[in-house]
């Protein structure tokens, strides 16, 4: 697990765990649907994640919107999923970027945990998968290019697309 503090947001450390070969995606999704409060996480489908920067842009956006009382979804965790999506349709953003029954690789994020040790233990207990390093290389190996192209309406998927996708996240809702 990695703990990341985004510049300018020292009060909101992110705990991030990347899992590969997840076996119980349907169970995890169900916990979110049921509103199980033990599962206050952003569960992202790693197939539509380009890079660390991509993830951080969505986290920054979601946290800033939380601070500004502009949440469009339930909480900061669901807002991260929503922030990733270039359009304002909430259920579509969950379908595209959130955990689904077919999710293979999963990126789990916890914002400002009150008990970091508990969060790590709970995540590792709850997600049946292999913990792998959260790096651009590993992420690149997990991307589903066709999904990414469709989600962001882009022709190119790769490092060059990062800046554009981050820009779209910043501009979202304008």
């Amino acid at each position: 697990m990695e703990t990341i503090t985004l510049p300018h947001l020292p009060q909101f450390p992110l705990q991030v765990v990347l899992f590969s070969e997840v076996k119980n995606a349907d169970f995890l999704r169900q916990q979110l649907l049921d509103g199980n409060t033990d599962f206050e996480y952003a569960f992202l489908d790693a197939a539509v994640i380009l890079s660390r920067e991509h993830v951080f842009a969505a986290c920054f956006r979601a946290i800033n919107d939380t601070l500004q009382s502009r949440l469009k979804s339930k909480n900061v965790h669901s807002e991260i999923v929503f922030a990733l999506s270039p359009n304002n349709n909430i259920s579509e953003s969950f379908r595209r970027f959130g955990v689904s029954d077919t999710t293979k690789d999963l990126l789990a994020i916890k914002v400002a945990s009150r008990d970091a040790v508990h969060t790590e233990t709970h995540l590792k207990e709850s997600v049946q998968g292999t913990v792998v390093p959260f790096t651009d290389e590993v992420l690149a190996g997990m991307t589903d290019e066709a999904c990414l192209r469709k989600a962001y309406k882009i022709d190119v998927v790769g490092n060059e697309a990062d800046a554009y996708v981050v820009g779209m996240i910043a501009l979202k809702g304008s």
Binding site: D155, Y164, M168, G173
Partner: peptide
């Protein structure tokens, strides 16, 4: 402009 050569159809959100 950052989407030049990347965006399909060249549209940005909003």
């Amino acid at each position: 402009l950052s989407g030049e050569g990347i965006a399909a159809g060249g549209s940005t959100p909003g």
